[in-house]
Design a protein around this nucleic acid. Sequence first.
DNA 1: GCTCCTTTGTACGCCAGCGCACACAAAATG
DNA 2: CATTTTGTGTGCGCTGGCGTACAAAGGAGC
Lengths: 238, 238
Amino acid sequence: MTLRSKPKNGFRNRLLNGLPPPALRRLRKHLKEVTLSRRDSLHEPGKPFRFVYFPETAMASLLTVLKDGTQTEVASIGREGMVGLPAFLGAKRSARRAICQMPGTAWRLSAAELVRQTHRGGPLSDLLHRYAQALFTQMAQLATCNRLHTIEQRCCCWLLMTHDRVEGDEFYVTHEFLSEMLGARRSGVTVIAGTLQRAGLISYTRGRVTILDRRGLEKAACECYAIVRREFDSLLRA
Amino acid sequence: MTLRSKPKNGFRNRLLNGLPPPALRRLRKHLKEVTLSRRDSLHEPGKPFRFVYFPETAMASLLTVLKDGTQTEVASIGREGMVGLPAFLGAKRSARRAICQMPGTAWRLSAAELVRQTHRGGPLSDLLHRYAQALFTQMAQLATCNRLHTIEQRCCCWLLMTHDRVEGDEFYVTHEFLSEMLGARRSGVTVIAGTLQRAGLISYTRGRVTILDRRGLEKAACECYAIVRREFDSLLRA
DNA sequence: GCTCCTTTGTACGCCAGCGCACACAAAATG
DNA sequence: CATTTTGTGTGCGCTGGCGTACAAAGGAGC
């Protein structure tokens, strides 16, 4: 049970990897590999889309930003997806913020070229449609989850989703950053981090999270994780 | 400031109404006008899409259903949209539940025909892409709203969105039903209904809501309403 | 080694909203 | 007109999570 897959086309990104060779050839020369650092901004609310990104080892977050500056995560995007779906859907400007959450590499494509290559349908368009559907599920579930589930449950969900998208069982995220994603207090996250450590599910020191007991985490999470996960698996299996 | 618009093609639904005549002619013979009653189920989680719906006077809700049966609203769909977007996006089965929230009429189209007519792009496909983008914004904002805002604010948002989608200033919804949509207690909604009435913003007796002071409601709501509203207006102006 | 900064641990008072329970009124039904 | 159902008003104790504050524990640089 993992989102990782053997590169077939030399791409780890599942969307690119899922393209048939001719479609990939058309796209290939427009793709540029870029390295993203933690907190790099990929899109800003109200700003035009210049590029979209297909994460390889990097991972991004979609954030809603409120007037007072508060921002919370509404979706996370790793190698299973693309950052900038609205550009494909015909939006000229981003409605949300997108930032790099875990540093790494991604393939960058100009928004204009994306539109050009998907304008009349085709395999890339089909893949992005399916991805859009998966993203809908992720957001819908998060809306419900945010309303009904405890911070502890949601924190477990977050750790699991991140674990799915990174290499290995270890990644870097501070309580502070995580609390912002979850829309909670930093000290609330600290308490939960303590609970999860004492339960032997993770180890967590100074930003260094290690997943020790995935099964246990899945039990401690709400059903939302499994629902989203299943949807991604079934839609992007193709 | 209203989502309503003069029918150009004899359709109140803004997507159908926005189609150029040739595209509309192709679609027309496959559309069947249906009357929907409150709480009619349009799609069920896990079940195949047979039809999609373009509401005229009816209004629908998209709900996430949890294992324990709890369901909460993740989006509402009126004449500005279509129920069953995932069918257009290539999903065979619905991931969520869709029900009729306000009775009325809608144009029904078979999911297969929708796919056929949008397969290679075209005006309907373009419109649905833009609508998908608007729906993303609605869901993203709701996820944030559910996390950060009070029930009172969210209740005002809900009333405003509904007001935008129905004829006139009056509609029917019980505290019980509203509380389910908001993911709150029935008695919590009752208290807030009282507050809003005492403030002269609405009148509300036995399911009969009348919007008395829209401006006031907009002030009592969080910014989420305005954000979603602006996005819909700008994307569907076309 | 010492200093500074980031990150974490912990505590305390507070309140929005929950779960539950019960009473009552208006409408529907027989 | 009596009875049942549906919808509303209200109260009470409880708790998850907030806002805030402060101190301690790594690390990074000098």
